[in-house]
């Protein structure tokens, strides 16, 4: 952790220094520099491009373009800095025109999803590794299918002979095994749904016959394993889904930004 902490300290210090410098420059120049809004606009646009080009870097892993870790560090710190640049460009005022409002909202959404993603990326992996049962996201569905088939065999298969277990299975367990469940509970680290299911299983087991007990114990084991898969699916999906906001909206933001630039120049005092 030592290197990460040092990196973190360095990055945060650099960010704070850059922010202070930017604010001082803003104070010094925002009234005197000709075309100040154009200058901050171009700087903001350049920063946004650097942020966006990280995606291109990911598509070119075979070129020696620096490692992705450094890119991400730059992406994160520059991202925070760009938020400040954004406010400077707006001169710390709220936008009022429709185009400006849509631009600012897109920017806010992209930035907010980025910050959310950063937190998710720092929190969820640790939870996943603590829970264990490492599994590749694409393999969760096949594995769940295996568990479902196994559980069906135990409860309903030719060897099964207990109507009580079969009834319980079709009523309670079949929906559980049918697909991913309790995603929100897993996300908030609540084990209550699976505990109540296991408690019901346990109730049934206590009153069951020898054969039923065996079947129910096996089913409880399968439920736990299925729950592990659900947990991994919920968290791994969250780790992927935030990018569904961050990435597409970045494209929209870039297009709106280009339109903004064109309009600003077409409507500038110097437009011909």
């Amino acid at each position: 952790m030592r290197r990460f902490r040092r990196q973190h300290l360095l990055g945060t210090t650099a960010l704070i220094v850059a922010a202070i410098a930017a604010l001082l420059l803003h104070r010094a120049f925002h009234r005197t520099l000709p075309d100040y809004a154009f200058v901050t606009g171009w700087i903001l646009f350049a920063a946004m491009l650097v942020l966006a080009v990280y995606n291109a870097r990911k598509k070119l892993p075979f070129l020696p373009l620096g490692n992705s870790e450094s890119w991400l560090q730059i992406h994160i710190y520059l991202g925070f800095f760009t938020v400040l640049l954004f406010f400077i460009h707006l001169n710390f005022r709220l936008p009022r025109g429709w185009l400006d409002i849509s631009l600012a909202s897109l920017f806010a959404l992209v930035a907010a999803s980025g910050v959310a993603g950063l937190f998710l990326s720092r929190i969820l992996p640790r939870r996943l590794s603590t829970r264990g049962g490492e599994v590749i996201h694409e393999q969760i569905a096949p594995l769940r299918h295996v568990l479902k088939t196994e559980s069906e065999m135990i409860a309903l298969g030719p060897a099964a002979s207990s109507p009580a277990v079969a009834e319980f299975y079709t009523r309670r367990l079949a929906p559980f095994f049918a697909g991913p469940k309790n995603a929100w509970a897993h996300l908030f680290e609540s084990r209550r749904p699976v505990h109540s299911l296991l408690a019901e299983l346990e109730d049934l087991r206590r009153t069951g016959s020898e054969a039923e007990r065996g079947a129910l114990e096996k089913l409880a084991d399968l439920v736990r394993r299925k729950d592990g898969l659900d947990y991994h699916r919920a968290l791994q999906l969250t780790l992927k889904l935030w990018l569904f906001i961050h990435v597409p909206l970045t494209y929209a933001l870039l297009i709106f930004t280009l339109a903004h630039i064109a309009i600003v120049f077409a409507f500038s005092g110097g437009a011909q």
Partner: peptide, 18 residues
């Protein structure tokens, strides 16, 4: 390091690209 890995599969995709 599973405490840091976000399971994004960027490594596998990079491997495939190369």
């Amino acid at each position: 390091d599973l405490d840091r890995c976000t399971r994004c599969d960027d490594c596998v995709r990079a491997c495939a690209s190369t």
